[in-house]
Amino acid sequence: MDNAFDLDVWVNEARAEPFKFKLAGRVYTLLPAGELDKLLSDRQRHVLKADHGIAPVERYGDGPDAALATDMGVTPYQVRQARAKGKNHSAG
């Protein structure tokens, strides 16, 4: 009998179903990952991935925005704006 955790099934469910969790006695619900993706522009998604090194984007972390901006073909200001808007959307 195969008792292996099926990550493919879990990812599909996480993209479609809200994520509920409890913290300090309160129940919270996060948007399904698929819905959150729809809220972010391509630029916002790319900048947030670069901040954390989420594949396929290289990790820029706390590095200067100018390096990421050059790689993206945009200005450092546009990187900062995309980051702020992306974080605002993901914070709900």
Rank of each mutant, 00 (worst) to 15 (best):
P76E: 04
L48S: 01
R26W: 01
K49P: 02
L68C: 07
V11K: 03
W10P: 00
A16S: 10
F21Q: 08
G25W: 00
G73H: 14
G61Y: 07
N3D: 13
E58D: 04
L39V: 11
V27L: 00
A55E: 12
G63T: 02
L7K: 12
L68Y: 06
T75Q: 04
V79R: 04
M72E: 14
L39Y: 05
Y60M: 02
D42F: 07
A84N: 12
E17H: 03
K85T: 09
K87W: 10
R43D: 10
H89R: 15
V74Y: 08
R80I: 07
D37Y: 13
L48C: 04
Q78V: 09
V27H: 02
D65T: 05
V57E: 11
A84D: 12
R15K: 14
E17W: 00
D37G: 09
P64Y: 06
I54Y: 10
D51M: 13
D62P: 03
D51C: 13
Y28K: 00
Q81A: 07
D62N: 15
D65C: 01
R83T: 03
A16Y: 06
T29L: 01
S41L: 08
S41T: 15
Y77C: 04
S90Q: 09
V57M: 11
M1R: 02
K49L: 10
E13T: 05
A67T: 07
K20Y: 06
D42A: 14
A91R: 14
P18C: 05
